[in-house]
Nucleic acid binder design. Structure first.
Lengths: 155, 155
DNA sequence: GACTAATATTACGCACCCTAAATAAATGAA
DNA sequence: TTCATTTATTTAGGGTGCGTAATATTAGTC
């Protein structure tokens, strides 16, 4: 019988989840690095990554309720309020009460918000492509599929 | 020549990056969902996911400088200060000036911080495994490899 | 030793992000 | 009608994350 160093007594399975090498932390890190890249491109325009994703929802369908945006993005409602406040201040959207159900606030694009539809997607494409350099078409597809399966598992 | 609806005039390439279906947002979403799961397990212990990753670093090597932790985790230095403040308040770590170079603060685990080494890794394993259900060994490996390549690309 | 430059950290402000509680409007049963 | 219940949203408060500026200490130069 040999003794092992105290620090190494943890099971292999426990070692492999430890940050920063664990899968979870690397997913977070990739997300964060992509966010930083995007943020530094949006900042000169007075925008944030969160503004981008809300705009995406409204470009697809204008006049959504706050709760619909929250659901599409799987973001907590309370989180959105502040973001929408700042987007309204910056003239990207306007809020309007639903005439049928006055509990509901509907979010509409302003002209400025509409026009960004021509400006922002190319930036997103550029950043995504820079992350995917060296990955084949099938590798990209495979990654995307595995990602979706993990999201379903955890949802 | 046929005309297409105004809303559909964007190139295919622009459509596919739009949140919430774009790759970037799905990566962020997975990261966020994992974070929420972890947080709800850590909250009863008075801990946060950020505490976990700092503890991981110190379990591997105690007495690190703030800047070393920041570098390992690829986190901005300023971000860590607040986290370390709260960890110190909760008795997980203590700060001590380096005797050689008094500009440097070294971070040491307390007894409480050390003992969590037996408690937290199983929780992390459990959450990771729940996200990986239905993925074969080779799919897990492939995902991990692609993740690393994207991190290198974007770093 | 005094001055300057470099390094490590802290302090502050803004934007997310989550939970829980409060507010307000609509709904449905007594 | 009335009132409790449900639904939609906001408010409040703490923690995370980033950039920039300020502070403290060390190291290099005269």
């Amino acid at each position: 019988m040999t003794s092992s160093p105290v620090k190494q007594k943890l099971p292999q399975e426990w070692q492999e989840v430890l940050a920063p090498h664990g899968l979870g932390y690397r997913i977070k890190l990739l997300s964060q690095l992509l966010g930083r890249k995007f943020q530094e491109r949006l900042e000169p325009l007075g925008l944030t990554p969160f503004h981008w994703v809300v705009l995406c929802c409204l470009w697809e369908e204008d006049g959504l309720a706050t709760s619909s945006i929250s659901e599409k993005l799987q973001q907590v409602g309370g989180t959105l309020t502040g973001v929408l406040d700042r987007m309204e201040e910056r003239g990207l959207i306007r809020r309007e009460r639903d005439s049928q159900d006055r509990r509901i606030w509907r979010i509409w694009l302003t002209e400025a918000g509409e026009q960004l539809r021509e400006v922002l997607p190319p930036i997103a494409v550029e950043i995504r492509d820079s992350a995917l350099i060296g990955l084949s078409q099938s590798e990209r597809q495979h990654f995307s599929d595995l990602l979706d399966r993990m999201i379903v598992n955890i949802s």
